[in-house]
Design a protein around this nucleic acid. Sequence first.
DNA 1: TTGCTAAGATTACATTATAACAATCGCTAC
DNA 2: GTAGCGATTGTTATAATGTAATCTTAGCAA
Lengths: 171, 171
Amino acid sequence: MNTLRDPLLMPLTAEHNHQQCVSRALNTAEQLCLNRGVQLTAIRLQVLSLIWADHKAVKAYELLDRIKPLQSAAKPATIYRALDFLIEQGLIHRIESLNAFVGCRCSGQPHELLLLICKQCEEVEERAALEVMHTIANELTAAHFIVHSKAIEIQGICGKCALQSLSESST
Amino acid sequence: MNTLRDPLLMPLTAEHNHQQCVSRALNTAEQLCLNRGVQLTAIRLQVLSLIWADHKAVKAYELLDRIKPLQSAAKPATIYRALDFLIEQGLIHRIESLNAFVGCRCSGQPHELLLLICKQCEEVEERAALEVMHTIANELTAAHFIVHSKAIEIQGICGKCALQSLSESST
DNA sequence: TTGCTAAGATTACATTATAACAATCGCTAC
DNA sequence: GTAGCGATTGTTATAATGTAATCTTAGCAA
Ligand SMILES: [Zn+2]
Ligand SMILES: [Zn+2]
Ligand SMILES: [Zn+2]
Ligand SMILES: [Zn+2]
Protein backbone atom coordinates (compact mmCIF):
# COMPACT_ATOMS: atom_id res chain seq x y z
CA MET A 1 0.00 0.00 0.00
CA ASN A 2 1.41 3.32 -1.06
CA THR A 3 0.83 5.53 1.93
CA LEU A 4 2.89 8.29 0.41
CA ARG A 5 -0.07 9.37 -1.61
CA ASP A 6 -2.49 9.59 1.25
CA PRO A 7 -3.46 13.25 1.44
CA LEU A 8 -3.87 12.88 5.17
CA LEU A 9 -0.17 12.25 5.45
CA MET A 10 0.78 15.18 3.31
CA PRO A 11 -0.84 18.16 4.93
CA LEU A 12 -1.23 21.23 2.82
CA THR A 13 0.87 23.82 4.58
CA ALA A 14 1.90 27.27 3.52
CA GLU A 15 5.54 26.22 3.37
CA HIS A 16 5.21 23.10 1.27
CA ASN A 17 7.28 22.63 -1.86
CA HIS A 18 4.59 22.98 -4.46
CA GLN A 19 6.83 22.03 -7.34
CA GLN A 20 6.80 18.55 -5.82
CA CYS A 21 3.01 18.48 -5.89
CA VAL A 22 3.06 19.42 -9.56
CA SER A 23 5.71 16.99 -10.72
CA ARG A 24 4.18 14.17 -8.75
CA ALA A 25 0.75 14.89 -10.24
CA LEU A 26 2.05 15.06 -13.78
CA ASN A 27 4.22 11.98 -13.45
CA THR A 28 1.37 10.00 -11.97
CA ALA A 29 -0.89 11.17 -14.78
CA GLU A 30 1.55 10.06 -17.44
CA GLN A 31 2.05 6.67 -15.83
CA LEU A 32 -1.67 6.07 -15.41
CA CYS A 33 -2.52 7.02 -18.97
CA LEU A 34 0.27 4.85 -20.26
CA ASN A 35 -0.94 1.87 -18.24
CA ARG A 36 -4.50 2.41 -19.34
CA GLY A 37 -3.69 2.94 -22.99
CA VAL A 38 -5.33 6.36 -23.12
CA GLN A 39 -3.72 9.47 -24.54
CA LEU A 40 -2.53 12.27 -22.35
CA THR A 41 -2.35 14.68 -25.26
CA ALA A 42 -0.67 18.09 -25.22
CA ILE A 43 -3.93 19.91 -24.55
CA ARG A 44 -4.91 17.55 -21.76
CA LEU A 45 -1.50 17.83 -20.16
CA GLN A 46 -1.57 21.60 -20.41
CA VAL A 47 -4.99 21.80 -18.79
CA LEU A 48 -3.84 19.48 -16.03
CA SER A 49 -0.75 21.60 -15.46
CA LEU A 50 -2.81 24.78 -15.33
CA ILE A 51 -5.12 23.23 -12.77
CA TRP A 52 -2.09 22.31 -10.72
CA ALA A 53 -0.80 25.88 -10.76
CA ASP A 54 -1.91 25.93 -7.14
CA HIS A 55 -4.33 24.20 -4.80
CA LYS A 56 -7.21 26.55 -5.54
CA ALA A 57 -10.41 25.71 -7.28
CA VAL A 58 -10.22 26.90 -10.86
CA LYS A 59 -13.07 27.63 -13.26
CA ALA A 60 -13.35 26.38 -16.82
CA TYR A 61 -13.23 29.81 -18.40
CA GLU A 62 -10.25 30.77 -16.26
CA LEU A 63 -8.48 27.77 -17.73
CA LEU A 64 -9.57 28.88 -21.16
CA ASP A 65 -7.93 32.27 -20.61
CA ARG A 66 -4.81 30.67 -19.24
CA ILE A 67 -4.41 28.23 -22.12
CA LYS A 68 -4.95 30.78 -24.88
CA PRO A 69 -1.25 31.74 -25.06
CA LEU A 70 -0.40 28.07 -25.60
CA GLN A 71 -3.37 27.10 -27.74
CA SER A 72 -4.58 30.18 -29.49
CA ALA A 73 -7.43 28.22 -31.10
CA ALA A 74 -8.82 27.11 -27.75
CA LYS A 75 -12.59 27.39 -27.35
CA PRO A 76 -14.90 26.36 -24.48
CA ALA A 77 -15.25 22.91 -25.98
CA THR A 78 -11.47 22.51 -25.92
CA ILE A 79 -11.44 22.99 -22.18
CA TYR A 80 -14.55 21.01 -21.38
CA ARG A 81 -13.37 18.04 -23.40
CA ALA A 82 -10.05 18.05 -21.60
CA LEU A 83 -11.81 18.38 -18.25
CA ASP A 84 -14.11 15.47 -19.08
CA PHE A 85 -11.12 13.32 -19.90
CA LEU A 86 -9.24 14.28 -16.74
CA ILE A 87 -12.28 13.60 -14.58
CA GLU A 88 -12.87 10.23 -16.25
CA GLN A 89 -9.29 9.27 -15.53
CA GLY A 90 -9.62 10.44 -11.94
CA LEU A 91 -6.91 13.06 -12.31
CA ILE A 92 -9.05 15.99 -11.22
CA HIS A 93 -12.26 16.54 -9.28
CA ARG A 94 -15.21 18.72 -10.13
CA ILE A 95 -16.47 20.88 -7.29
CA GLU A 96 -20.22 21.00 -7.71
CA SER A 97 -20.88 23.84 -5.33
CA LEU A 98 -18.43 26.13 -7.16
CA ASN A 99 -18.66 24.92 -10.76
CA ALA A 100 -14.92 24.59 -10.55
CA PHE A 101 -12.15 22.04 -10.65
CA VAL A 102 -9.18 20.98 -8.59
CA GLY A 103 -6.34 18.54 -9.02
CA CYS A 104 -6.70 15.16 -7.35
CA ARG A 105 -3.99 14.43 -4.81
CA CYS A 106 -4.44 10.67 -4.90
CA SER A 107 -4.99 9.84 -8.55
CA GLY A 108 -4.79 6.23 -9.44
CA GLN A 109 -6.24 4.99 -6.23
CA PRO A 110 -9.99 4.65 -6.47
CA HIS A 111 -11.26 6.81 -3.68
CA GLU A 112 -14.19 8.64 -2.30
CA LEU A 113 -13.54 12.01 -0.88
CA LEU A 114 -14.63 14.93 1.14
CA LEU A 115 -13.65 18.38 -0.07
CA LEU A 116 -12.90 21.22 2.32
CA ILE A 117 -13.23 24.49 0.48
CA CYS A 118 -11.83 27.62 2.10
CA LYS A 119 -13.81 30.73 1.27
CA GLN A 120 -10.90 32.93 2.17
CA CYS A 121 -7.84 31.50 0.40
CA GLU A 122 -9.94 29.42 -2.03
CA GLU A 123 -7.75 26.39 -1.49
CA VAL A 124 -9.36 22.99 -1.53
CA GLU A 125 -8.28 20.16 0.69
CA GLU A 126 -9.18 16.61 -0.21
CA ARG A 127 -9.63 14.16 2.63
CA ALA A 128 -10.27 10.46 2.52
CA ALA A 129 -12.51 10.59 5.61
CA LEU A 130 -13.03 6.86 5.85
CA GLU A 131 -15.22 7.15 8.94
CA VAL A 132 -17.51 9.55 7.12
CA MET A 133 -17.74 7.29 4.10
CA HIS A 134 -18.53 4.39 6.36
CA THR A 135 -21.46 6.12 8.06
CA ILE A 136 -22.73 7.33 4.70
CA ALA A 137 -22.63 3.77 3.41
CA ASN A 138 -24.70 2.69 6.40
CA GLU A 139 -27.18 5.47 5.80
CA LEU A 140 -27.53 4.49 2.15
CA THR A 141 -28.09 0.87 3.04
CA ALA A 142 -30.80 1.88 5.46
CA ALA A 143 -32.43 3.95 2.74
CA HIS A 144 -32.13 1.13 0.17
CA PHE A 145 -30.32 3.56 -2.06
CA ILE A 146 -27.84 2.42 -4.73
CA VAL A 147 -25.07 4.95 -4.98
CA HIS A 148 -23.55 6.05 -8.27
CA SER A 149 -21.64 9.12 -7.16
CA LYS A 150 -21.17 11.34 -4.16
CA ALA A 151 -20.50 15.03 -3.71
CA ILE A 152 -19.48 15.89 -0.18
CA GLU A 153 -18.38 19.48 -0.06
CA ILE A 154 -17.84 21.63 2.98
CA GLN A 155 -17.37 25.36 2.70
CA GLY A 156 -15.78 27.40 5.44
CA ILE A 157 -12.44 28.65 6.69
CA CYS A 158 -9.36 26.46 6.65
CA GLY A 159 -7.06 26.11 9.62
CA LYS A 160 -4.35 28.22 8.04
CA CYS A 161 -6.68 31.16 7.42
CA ALA A 162 -8.28 30.82 10.85
CA LEU A 163 -4.85 31.09 12.47
CA GLN A 164 -3.97 34.14 10.41
CA SER A 165 -7.21 35.88 11.41
CA LEU A 166 -6.44 35.15 15.05
CA SER A 167 -2.93 36.56 14.94
CA GLU A 168 -4.11 39.61 12.99
CA SER A 169 -6.94 40.44 15.36
CA SER A 170 -4.59 40.19 18.37
CA THR A 171 -2.26 42.95 17.12
CA MET B 1 -39.37 17.57 20.06
CA ASN B 2 -41.57 17.36 17.04
CA THR B 3 -40.78 13.96 15.61
CA LEU B 4 -43.64 14.21 13.15
CA ARG B 5 -41.50 16.30 10.88
CA ASP B 6 -38.56 13.97 10.86
CA PRO B 7 -38.28 12.83 7.28
CA LEU B 8 -36.94 9.52 8.51
CA LEU B 9 -40.32 8.80 10.01
CA MET B 10 -42.21 9.79 6.92
CA PRO B 11 -40.84 7.64 4.16
CA LEU B 12 -41.50 8.83 0.65
CA THR B 13 -43.54 6.04 -0.86
CA ALA B 14 -45.31 5.85 -4.14
CA GLU B 15 -48.69 5.69 -2.41
CA HIS B 16 -48.34 8.65 -0.11
CA ASN B 17 -50.95 11.36 -0.08
CA HIS B 18 -49.02 14.16 -1.65
CA GLN B 19 -51.68 16.75 -1.02
CA GLN B 20 -50.76 16.39 2.62
CA CYS B 21 -47.12 17.11 1.85
CA VAL B 22 -48.14 20.26 0.02
CA SER B 23 -50.56 21.62 2.58
CA ARG B 24 -48.18 20.88 5.41
CA ALA B 25 -45.33 22.63 3.62
CA LEU B 26 -47.42 25.70 2.80
CA ASN B 27 -48.94 25.93 6.28
CA THR B 28 -45.54 25.62 7.90
CA ALA B 29 -44.17 28.29 5.59
CA GLU B 30 -46.96 30.71 6.47
CA GLN B 31 -46.53 30.13 10.17
CA LEU B 32 -42.77 30.52 10.04
CA CYS B 33 -42.89 33.73 8.04
CA LEU B 34 -45.54 35.13 10.35
CA ASN B 35 -43.44 34.32 13.41
CA ARG B 36 -40.33 35.80 11.85
CA GLY B 37 -42.01 38.93 10.59
CA VAL B 38 -41.05 38.30 6.98
CA GLN B 39 -43.44 38.42 4.06
CA LEU B 40 -44.49 35.32 2.21
CA THR B 41 -45.70 37.33 -0.77
CA ALA B 42 -47.82 36.01 -3.63
CA ILE B 43 -44.83 35.39 -5.87
CA ARG B 44 -42.87 33.64 -3.14
CA LEU B 45 -45.83 31.47 -2.27
CA GLN B 46 -46.42 30.61 -5.90
CA VAL B 47 -42.80 29.59 -6.37
CA LEU B 48 -42.93 27.50 -3.23
CA SER B 49 -46.12 25.81 -4.42
CA LEU B 50 -44.61 25.09 -7.81
CA ILE B 51 -41.57 23.55 -6.17
CA TRP B 52 -43.88 21.38 -4.11
CA ALA B 53 -45.71 20.12 -7.21
CA ASP B 54 -43.86 16.89 -6.53
CA HIS B 55 -40.72 15.62 -4.80
CA LYS B 56 -38.51 16.10 -7.82
CA ALA B 57 -35.67 18.53 -8.19
CA VAL B 58 -36.85 21.49 -10.22
CA LYS B 59 -34.75 23.99 -12.14
CA ALA B 60 -35.05 27.75 -11.94
CA TYR B 61 -36.06 28.19 -15.57
CA GLU B 62 -38.61 25.42 -15.28
CA LEU B 63 -40.15 27.41 -12.46
CA LEU B 64 -40.03 30.48 -14.65
CA ASP B 65 -42.01 28.68 -17.35
CA ARG B 66 -44.46 27.34 -14.82
CA ILE B 67 -45.08 30.70 -13.19
CA LYS B 68 -45.57 32.63 -16.44
CA PRO B 69 -49.32 31.90 -16.60
CA LEU B 70 -49.70 33.35 -13.11
CA GLN B 71 -47.14 36.16 -13.40
CA SER B 72 -46.82 37.06 -17.03
CA ALA B 73 -44.16 39.67 -16.20
CA ALA B 74 -41.91 37.09 -14.58
CA LYS B 75 -38.24 37.25 -15.51
CA PRO B 76 -35.24 35.24 -14.28
CA ALA B 77 -34.69 37.73 -11.48
CA THR B 78 -38.26 37.17 -10.32
CA ILE B 79 -37.55 33.51 -9.75
CA TYR B 80 -34.08 33.88 -8.32
CA ARG B 81 -35.22 36.47 -5.79
CA ALA B 82 -38.00 34.21 -4.64
CA LEU B 83 -35.61 31.27 -4.47
CA ASP B 84 -33.12 33.30 -2.44
CA PHE B 85 -35.85 34.19 0.01
CA LEU B 86 -37.09 30.63 0.34
CA ILE B 87 -33.57 29.33 0.89
CA GLU B 88 -32.83 32.00 3.50
CA GLN B 89 -35.96 30.99 5.33
CA GLY B 90 -35.03 27.33 5.11
CA LEU B 91 -38.13 26.43 3.13
CA ILE B 92 -36.30 24.90 0.19
CA HIS B 93 -32.87 23.48 -0.52
CA ARG B 94 -30.58 24.12 -3.41
CA ILE B 95 -29.07 21.00 -4.98
CA GLU B 96 -25.58 22.00 -6.03
CA SER B 97 -24.88 19.00 -8.20
CA LEU B 98 -28.01 19.61 -10.29
CA ASN B 99 -28.40 23.38 -10.18
CA ALA B 100 -31.90 22.66 -8.97
CA PHE B 101 -34.18 23.08 -6.00
CA VAL B 102 -36.39 20.95 -3.83
CA GLY B 103 -38.85 21.62 -1.04
CA CYS B 104 -37.58 21.11 2.50
CA ARG B 105 -39.48 18.48 4.44
CA CYS B 106 -38.47 19.76 7.85
CA SER B 107 -38.65 23.52 7.58
CA GLY B 108 -38.45 25.41 10.78
CA GLN B 109 -36.08 23.05 12.45
CA PRO B 110 -32.50 24.04 11.88
CA HIS B 111 -30.98 20.99 10.31
CA GLU B 112 -28.15 19.62 8.32
CA LEU B 113 -29.01 17.16 5.67
CA LEU B 114 -27.98 14.56 3.23
CA LEU B 115 -29.75 14.50 -0.12
CA LEU B 116 -30.42 11.27 -1.99
CA ILE B 117 -31.03 12.08 -5.62
CA CYS B 118 -32.54 9.39 -7.82
CA LYS B 119 -31.31 9.56 -11.40
CA GLN B 120 -34.28 7.55 -12.60
CA CYS B 121 -37.37 9.14 -11.03
CA GLU B 122 -35.57 12.40 -10.18
CA GLU B 123 -37.05 12.44 -6.72
CA VAL B 124 -34.96 13.78 -3.88
CA GLU B 125 -35.05 12.36 -0.41
CA GLU B 126 -33.80 14.41 2.49
CA ARG B 127 -32.30 12.58 5.44
CA ALA B 128 -31.11 13.90 8.76
CA ALA B 129 -28.30 11.33 8.94
CA LEU B 130 -27.13 12.32 12.40
CA GLU B 131 -24.38 9.70 12.44
CA VAL B 132 -22.98 11.04 9.22
CA MET B 133 -23.06 14.60 10.50
CA HIS B 134 -21.31 13.48 13.63
CA THR B 135 -18.42 11.84 11.79
CA ILE B 136 -18.13 14.85 9.49
CA ALA B 137 -17.92 17.12 12.52
CA ASN B 138 -15.09 14.98 13.85
CA GLU B 139 -13.31 15.12 10.53
CA LEU B 140 -13.61 18.90 10.42
CA THR B 141 -12.28 19.23 13.93
CA ALA B 142 -9.29 17.09 13.01
CA ALA B 143 -8.69 19.31 9.98
CA HIS B 144 -9.07 22.53 12.02
CA PHE B 145 -11.71 23.61 9.56
CA ILE B 146 -14.48 26.03 10.49
CA VAL B 147 -17.64 25.07 8.66
CA HIS B 148 -20.01 27.57 7.10
CA SER B 149 -22.11 25.29 4.95
CA LYS B 150 -22.27 21.71 3.77
CA ALA B 151 -23.44 20.08 0.58
CA ILE B 152 -23.77 16.33 0.91
CA GLU B 153 -25.39 14.97 -2.19
CA ILE B 154 -25.58 11.36 -3.29
CA GLN B 155 -26.70 10.41 -6.76
CA GLY B 156 -27.95 6.97 -7.61
CA ILE B 157 -31.08 4.85 -7.73
CA CYS B 158 -33.69 5.05 -5.00
CA GLY B 159 -35.20 1.97 -3.38
CA LYS B 160 -38.48 2.39 -5.21
CA CYS B 161 -36.88 2.45 -8.63
CA ALA B 162 -34.50 -0.40 -7.76
CA LEU B 163 -37.49 -2.57 -6.84
CA GLN B 164 -39.27 -1.70 -10.06
CA SER B 165 -36.22 -2.63 -12.13
CA LEU B 166 -36.01 -5.95 -10.30
CA SER B 167 -39.63 -6.88 -10.89
CA GLU B 168 -39.43 -5.79 -14.53
CA SER B 169 -36.29 -7.77 -15.30
CA SER B 170 -37.82 -10.91 -13.75
CA THR B 171 -40.75 -11.03 -16.20
C1' DT C 1 -46.64 65.57 2.95
C1' DT C 2 -42.32 63.71 2.86
C1' DG C 3 -39.13 60.28 3.43
C1' DC C 4 -37.96 55.50 4.17
C1' DT C 5 -37.86 50.54 3.19
C1' DA C 6 -39.10 46.14 1.16
C1' DA C 7 -40.50 44.25 -2.87
C1' DG C 8 -40.85 43.92 -7.56
C1' DA C 9 -40.07 45.31 -12.73
C1' DT C 10 -36.99 45.92 -16.43
C1' DT C 11 -33.01 45.75 -19.09
C1' DA C 12 -28.92 44.20 -19.99
C1' DC C 13 -25.27 41.31 -19.29
C1' DA C 14 -22.14 37.62 -17.34
C1' DT C 15 -21.11 32.90 -16.64
C1' DT C 16 -21.30 28.05 -17.46
C1' DA C 17 -21.99 24.34 -20.70
C1' DT C 18 -23.29 21.66 -24.85
C1' DA C 19 -24.71 20.40 -29.71
C1' DA C 20 -23.55 19.65 -34.31
C1' DC C 21 -20.61 19.07 -37.83
C1' DA C 22 -16.06 19.46 -40.18
C1' DA C 23 -11.18 18.63 -40.31
C1' DT C 24 -7.11 16.11 -38.99
C1' DC C 25 -4.09 12.43 -37.65
C1' DG C 26 -2.28 7.92 -36.73
C1' DC C 27 -3.21 3.39 -37.52
C1' DT C 28 -4.39 -0.94 -39.95
C1' DA C 29 -6.51 -4.09 -43.53
C1' DC C 30 -6.54 -4.72 -47.97
C1' DG D 1 -0.20 2.88 -51.38
C1' DT D 2 -4.66 3.87 -49.96
C1' DA D 3 -9.09 3.36 -48.12
C1' DG D 4 -11.31 3.11 -44.00
C1' DC D 5 -11.61 3.69 -38.98
C1' DG D 6 -11.56 5.70 -34.40
C1' DA D 7 -9.86 9.25 -31.49
C1' DT D 8 -8.92 13.91 -31.18
C1' DT D 9 -9.36 18.59 -32.21
C1' DG D 10 -11.37 22.75 -34.67
C1' DT D 11 -15.29 25.70 -35.48
C1' DT D 12 -19.63 27.77 -35.06
C1' DA D 13 -23.54 28.46 -32.83
C1' DT D 14 -26.53 28.28 -29.08
C1' DA D 15 -28.53 26.68 -24.70
C1' DA D 16 -28.77 26.98 -19.82
C1' DT D 17 -27.83 29.24 -15.60
C1' DG D 18 -27.26 33.35 -12.90
C1' DT D 19 -26.47 38.48 -11.65
C1' DA D 20 -25.93 43.65 -11.76
C1' DA D 21 -27.80 48.04 -12.15
C1' DT D 22 -31.41 51.01 -12.23
C1' DC D 23 -36.09 52.23 -11.75
C1' DT D 24 -40.82 51.95 -9.91
C1' DT D 25 -44.24 50.94 -6.63
C1' DA D 26 -46.71 50.16 -2.28
C1' DG D 27 -46.94 50.56 2.56
C1' DC D 28 -45.98 52.90 6.44
C1' DA D 29 -44.05 56.33 9.84
C1' DA D 30 -42.39 60.94 11.14
ZN1 LIG E 1 1.17 21.90 -3.45
ZN1 LIG F 1 -7.99 29.25 3.69
ZN1 LIG G 1 -45.38 14.12 -1.17
ZN1 LIG H 1 -36.16 6.74 -8.07
